[in-house]
Design a binder for these strands. Structure first.
Lengths: 240, 240
DNA sequence: TGATCGAACCAAAGCATGAATGGTTCGCTA
DNA sequence: TAGCGAACCATTCATGCTTTGGTTCGATCA
């Protein structure tokens, strides 16, 4: 942002509004749906023209802090991706085995492409995520970091169609039924193994080893679904 | 269908209606959107109770000839899949190379699963499609049959998540930009090669050869994208 | 002269209402 | 008992009005 400093001197209209709105947005207050007041309301509340409010919102939008939609409103954060609706639609119809199977085909492909295309900076960020997964004590939080790592690999692969397919899987996994399934499948003894697998995967990606990355991802997913399968069998045996 | 024959004797209401509606549906008449009259209209037109119409429609629906939706109506054929909207959204953002790449990962996976799960009856229908592709003189029509074969393989694979991913690809390929691209890439000399590849693919599927089916599909897609790439380069060279 | 403001208009989205339509239940009749 | 007619329910769609961001224009003031 190259905000002209002199405008601040002018009884503060635009820059003033920008500061106030930025504080409002970043403070994490506001209703849970993240919807801000309308531009007209803000203008009146802040005692300033609508034009000034719009300029401030444009700045915040370019920073990715808010997103706007004509006829809808201004919202905090990033615009929702259209994958969610589709994922919800098919989530109810799919069995766990189908999702695991699909992952076993799509994620190794993404890992391979990622190995071919990742830049040093990408690898560095992946290593940070691997660290976070391993160091986080709270397993729920660790799973969020794990998801972030897989998403990052998918994004770095640089194929939007496969990324959409992955997002579909990711959304299904994020649904409620799956979360509790994963909690059942949790096994503290496996953490060390997961860490080694993650490290091996990122190592392959770093040296551009496509086949190796695919294999590493496949091995990782296999141990995951193995654990999951055991948990399902146990719980089903318990239910009978 | 175990329609009780005696009902026909009773001045024919249900069985009579069923026959009339089946003829109406299979005759390929009706408006292009495939929407049938409302149940109430049909009942009045045929001079019969709504209940009889509903029973007939239930039979036709169980055969997959029509689909119905509360508040919407009764339609000929299969219900549309919800992938369309998402496909349209990402179609504009993706390059041809990305789609080809994604195909190269997803379709071999589907071919492999298909080889593992196809029943003799499925294989028989695939062979019919291969015949049709090869015997149809009109290349536009032949491409429709080709699409049908790939879709059938995807469906027979029996994984709904991967099927959704495939549908996404399929929708993108069906969009206008892609159709004209395929027309440019058309090469009459390749027809014999495509036929052989299709035959080899179905052969692998028939004998449950997972690896072979994957390889065959991969080889097929590679020649396709090879042709496509040449066509793109030629047209770009021509544009300069 | 240049920036800001207020007002008005445009286009996209939401919302409320009513009609159409498949899904369901009830009592009546032959 | 099966069919019929009627009524009611839940979902979907069409319609018109309102909201809201996007845009333009002239007026105002430093």
């Amino acid at each position: 942002m190259s905000v002209t400093e002199n405008t601040i001197l002018e009884a503060g209209s635009f820059a003033d509004v920008l500061r106030q709105l930025r504080r409002l947005v970043t403070s994490g207050e506001m209703p849970e749906d993240g919807k801000l007041p309308t531009e007209r309301e803000m203008a009146e509340t802040l005692g300033v023209g609508r034009r000034a409010v719009r300029r401030a919102l444009e700045a915040l939008e370019s920073e990715g802090l808010v997103w706007r939609k004509q006829g809808k409103g201004t919202f905090i954060g990033q615009p929702p991706d259209p994958t969610g609706a589709l994922a919800a639609a098919i989530a109810g119809q799919t069995r766990a085995s189908e999702v695991a199977e699909a992952r076993l085909y799509i994620e190794p492909a993404l890992a391979g492409l990622c190995a071919a295309r990742a830049k040093p900076d990408d690898v560095r960020r992946m290593r940070v995520l691997v660290e976070r997964i391993h160091q986080t004590a709270d397993r729920n939080a660790a799973e969020l970091w794990d998801g972030a790592l897989h998403r990052m690999i998918a994004r770095t692969a640089g194929n939007r169609v496969l990324l959409t397919a992955f997002s579909l899987l990711d959304e299904i996994r994020a649904s409620d039924v799956w979360r509790e399934l994963r909690e059942k499948a949790r096994d503290p003894g496996s953490n060390e193994l997961y860490f080694q697998q993650h490290m091996q995967l990122v190592d392959c990606i770093e040296r551009g080893d496509v086949i190796g990355a695919e294999e590493a991802m496949r091995a990782h997913l296999n141990t995951l679904s193995e654990r999951m399968r055991h948990a399902i069998e146990d719980s089903e045996a318990g239910d009978d």
